[in-house]
Design a protein around this nucleic acid. Sequence first.
DNA 1: GTCTATAATTTGATAGAC
DNA 2: GTCTATCAAATTATAGAC
Lengths: 187, 187
Amino acid sequence: MKSTKARILDVAESAARRGGYHSFSFRDIADEIGIKSASIHYHFPTKGDLARALAERYRKEFFKALPAPRSVDRKTSLNELVNALRASSQQDGMMCLCGMMAAEVDALPPEAAKEARAFFKQGIDWLEQVLSDAEPNADKRLAKALAILAGLEGALITRRGLGVPSGFDIAAREIVETLTGEIITLR
Amino acid sequence: MKSTKARILDVAESAARRGGYHSFSFRDIADEIGIKSASIHYHFPTKGDLARALAERYRKEFFKALPAPRSVDRKTSLNELVNALRASSQQDGMMCLCGMMAAEVDALPPEAAKEARAFFKQGIDWLEQVLSDAEPNADKRLAKALAILAGLEGALITRRGLGVPSGFDIAAREIVETLTGEIITLR
DNA sequence: GTCTATAATTTGATAGAC
DNA sequence: GTCTATCAAATTATAGAC
């Protein structure tokens, strides 16, 4: 049995990934779970608290599911990253939570905006380490890391913009394979 | 002197590109212009009408500013595309309006969602024509078009996620140059 | 075209009983 | 922890005067 707190986070994350922070209300979440909106305030006093917790949980789970940067070979690491973001796209064409929050960052409560930024910092850091052997030049390594992360987040957007499920796969594979020379296996 | 209707569109576009469709109200827009929110309803009966008009104007202006696909060489075309989206990023780190709307597409009024999708269809179409000489294989051409559009939209997101103005430039250049072999000139 | 006035609903949030 | 009850403010939208 999942705790109420976890169920709130699950439902809110799903809503935020579909329409952003401003697209859902405490009542929306409460109704879907079958509780009252006042109960959500017990777990998360303000909506900003909820959004911050959403982004923090998402970031931690996301990177926990990825291999530590130098623990496996480059190809495996890149595969895991692509497939992690692809999972967002698969079930219902959802955005990456932090990609969504970065897009709307100017209209987020500051504490939530900060957590969203932490996801990108950690993502770039992870990628730079993954690319460290293949790309000894620091500037070029940063450029590739930025390009890969941008390409994957953008692939989620184009998939939604075109409404075609394969949109993510084609774009993501093209970007990562061209930039790294590694062959990606989607699963 | 700009018409009130145009000023409404200007201010609403800016708000939508910062925080998305749900982040601003008719009153926000009215206050900034110095009119009453009821006056906006005269020009745009519902918020869905406003959002649809926003996306339509954005799409038309965007592609009107780009060269016709085969009228100039590939390098020039790609340069124009990158710099057009870079303009979004430059002034205040804003998103592309239709990139933002694609991200939140599940929570948009249907008529607005449709217009946002039209932007991506037209963008892919434009890119496929630009790449037609260099890439005779249709599948590969589509893959490159998707990857370029995804990469540029994603570069806007990572720039916002990292909060670093150069984030767009570095990612966008790396993606387009690697995918096409053409050298990009930012201006 | 823009205003005042207002309706109808939704929103984030709090107090206090159980 | 979850509820009922309630609040103040904000939201989209309409009616009708000027």
